[in-house]
């Protein structure tokens, strides 16, 4: 009963956000198109780079597009659902954060639903379209296992990116002016996952790919789908690790959020 009441409350918050945005119809359409453009350019960039080279890090355009599709689908959906948490400093400044804390619901879902950027739907749809096109045209030898992976990997990527958004946003509980720095991991992570990680090198690759876990969003699942061995030598089952990595990331994010709120409460920034 308790849970159902809370769910109904969250649904109402979502409805309110939809109606609020409908109040600005023209802006909404403009934003819808603009946001689409951002993701289109990400893909165009990849195409342009393949205009001057046949291979990138040992991968062809068709293979790379699977990586791109997994990445932009996951990122765009996570950005739609959770991306606005990067506005946390603003919520604190305008008092929305306090207002949310005096209501009988969890703080994070309230903030996300009250500021859900529905205009980013266009990107998520485009991301999905790219993924579907890439999967269809990459000449994948479909087995039941690969079908299952194609179904599981994108949501795992969404959870992973969502966790990255939340974790990096909690930095602003401690350092209010850190805004742009979170971008280096969120948007940086999107760019990182848009290419096969063989493109990168040294400690930078190690840090982003395995230190933070970005290799499991698109690179390893793509290898498993394409049936390619990892040029860097990891076994093929690693492609299946993405849900597990996403789970770990979500745990870290939940922990970071709890600790962050506690810090906010003890400093009242």
């Amino acid at each position: 009963m308790e849970v159902r009441g809370a769910l109904r409350a969250y649904r109402s918050l979502l409805g309110a956000q939809a109606r609020s945005q409908a109040a600005y119809r023209t802006s909404f359409v403009v934003d819808l198109v603009g946001n689409l453009g951002a993701t289109v350019f990400d893909v165009v960039t990849v195409l342009v780079i393949f205009g001057v080279t046949r291979e990138l890090g040992g991968f062809t355009l068709r293979e790379t597009l699977v990586v791109v599709g997994l990445s932009s689908c996951a990122f765009a959906a996570a950005d739609l659902l959770v991306g606005n948490i990067e506005r946390l400093p603003r919520y604190v400044r305008t008092g929305l954060f306090d207002a949310v804390l005096v209501r009988p619901l969890a703080a994070l879902p309230q903030l996300l639903l009250m500021d859900l950027p529905l205009r980013k739907v266009s990107r998520a749809v485009f991301g999905l379209a790219v993924l579907l096109y890439a999967l269809a045209s990459a000449g994948i030898d479909w087995t039941p296992g690969r079908v299952a992976l194609a179904v599981v990997a994108p949501p795992a990527g969404v959870v992973f990116f969502a966790s990255v958004f939340v974790t990096t946003a909690t930095v602003s509980f401690y350092w209010v002016d850190s805004g742009e720095m979170a971008n280096s991991v969120t948007y940086g992570g999107r760019d990182f996952t848009s290419y096969p990680i063989t493109v990168y090198g040294g400690w930078f690759r190690a840090l982003f790919a395995y230190g933070m876990g970005f290799a499991f969003v698109s690179y390893h699942p793509a290898l498993a789908l394409l049936g390619r061995a990892d040029p860097l030598g990891l076994p093929s089952w690693v492609g299946w690790a993405s849900p597990g990595v996403a789970f770990v990331a979500a745990t870290v994010a939940a922990l970071a959020w709890r600790v962050g709120i506690r810090h906010y409460r003890s400093t009242g920034s």
Binding site: S12, A16, A23, R103
Partner: peptide
């Protein structure tokens, strides 16, 4: 809710507070 009529804010709070 800034962009909604007052009446809708009240209605929302009914759900939020059950």
């Amino acid at each position: 809710w800034w962009d909604l009529p007052l009446r809708e804010s009240f209605d929302l709070l009914r759900h939020v507070y059950r």
